[in-house]
């Protein structure tokens, strides 16, 4: 299954506005994307399109997360979501 790692760049971590922007983008991708903290079992992965899941994940700035997806367009979707995570969304 295609997967990518990404380092959270937003100052406030994956909360608030950055979480909302990311969840919305994940919801719009053609495939289902999951998110987990790096090193945690794939079974614990959460729905990346769920803002509440993202908030309970509690990823802070500098934390590394793993995104996974399967199906047509998974690679492209993951790439664009990684870019989003590695951008400081609080700065915009």
């Amino acid at each position: 299954m295609p997967e990518r790692t990404a380092t959270i760049a937003s100052r406030s971590g994956l909360h608030a506005r950055p979480a909302a922007i990311f969840a919305e983008a994940a919801g719009e991708s053609p495939v289902e994307v999951t998110i987990a903290m790096a090193g945690s079992p794939a079974d614990d992965a959460l729905d990346a399109a769920s803002i509440l899941s993202l908030m309970t994940l509690g990823a802070a700035k500098g934390d590394v997360v793993v995104l996974r997806a399967e199906g047509d367009g998974a690679d492209a979707a993951l790439d664009s979501l990684v870019t989003l995570l590695e951008t400081d969304l609080d700065a915009e």
Partner: peptide, 16 residues
Amino acid sequence: KAVLEATALMAKDTML
């Protein structure tokens, strides 16, 4: 605006 956007997303959140 930020709070309302986040709250809007919660309304159709898959986890919930």
